[in-house]
Design a protein around this nucleic acid. Structure first.
Lengths: 68, 68
DNA sequence: ATATAATGTCAAGCATATTTTACATCTACA
DNA sequence: TGTAGATGTAAAATATGCTTGACATTATAT
């Protein structure tokens, strides 16, 4: 799944490590989500979006799910 | 995790079965999320919220995560 | 050039989400 | 009565998310 996490992180000059600590997870988890290795859980998605002052829908791209 | 799924479902007179089919999952998964047995994944949370024409934050209650 | 920070990746193991099948209860109603 | 629809639950199996530790590569700065 596509996300704006990397762009938001760069904007604020945060390392993956710093973001990980801020949202209570590990650097590897942030990397994996950024490169699309897997999709964040709902609680983690919320913590990340909320950390940036945004909604989940603003940070995560759900366009792949719109074929209903 | 608390959600408004049951209330939204009742409002629209939908069974768990009908909602499950509409979002591509099973009745048991809807029950489990409604009774708080576990938390929906991000894609499923999106499909449910979007099905009701709402955002994820409007359907799922994240107040338990606000202790940052 | 070399040191350091930042990032990508991988494997093992644990935790959580989901499906399938099945059974029980409750309600409504013929 | 009984029958059907809706719901709760549970076990087993599979899929997915996450952690930990470790190593490799890339970028940045000195």
């Amino acid at each position: 799944m596509q996300t704006k996490i990397r762009a938001l992180r760069k904007e604020r000059k945060l390392s993956q490590e710093e973001l990980a600590e801020a949202v209570g997870t590990t650097r590897q988890t942030i990397t994996s989500i950024e490169v699309g290795k897997y999709t964040a859980s709902l609680p983690l998605a919320y913590k990340i979006a909320h950390y940036f002052g945004l909604t989940i829908e603003e940070v995560f791209d759900f366009s792949e799910l719109e074929q209903l």
